[in-house]
Amino acid sequence: MPYAAQQQYCRDCPSDGKIMKILNAPIQEKYIRELKAGDEVTLSGTIYTVRDQAHKRLIQDIGRGKELPFDTKGAVIYYCGPAKAPKGRVIGSCGPTTSSRMDEFTPLLLKKELKAMIGKGRRSKEVIAAIKKYKAVYFLAPAGCGALISKYIKKAETVAYPDLGPEQILKLEVKGFPLIVGIDSQGGSIYDKD
């Protein structure tokens, strides 16, 4: 079934009952091309937490020609440094962090076939151009709602850089994670509202 026909009613989503598009991670380009800034989607599958210091290391590794700790092809990364998991839970509070701090690293990762990023706030002109060029997508997660977001994380495990503590790369299994398309593959932005 084509993805556009797979729609669901999502009770916890910001759209509050509106029909949302369902996406699975890793994401294929043909599905990304259908997304428009402002679309509400839910994401299920495997995503990776990558933030400031981990970005720095990935870029260094690419520069040195080293193999990266996860396959960036079609990958979705989440700008997030979660709180620790309380007993009996998979993860603690885990909302998005400010995406623009990652801007200088993003174009190179998109060149490495990274397909989607999840964060909060604006991106640089260079990032928007790279999103357009490589047909990727930038999602917004509900900012400052880390406790609620933890409900959508079903599994979390370390992939790389445990010495970075909360900034290590985690592999997350998510189910029905509610997101809004911030920047689409044509370079359209949700913040261009005027």
């Binding site: 910001p14 759209s15 440094g81 309380p86 509070s93 509900p142 400052g144 709602c145 406790a147």
Partner: peptide, 28 residues
Amino acid sequence: KRSKLFLKAIIDNAVYARKEKLAICQDT
């Protein structure tokens, strides 16, 4: 409309954090 729903999510988040003893935001 969408901003209103997001405000509701913020309020729900605070209620859920209190109930489940989770940090309101991971950035403490």
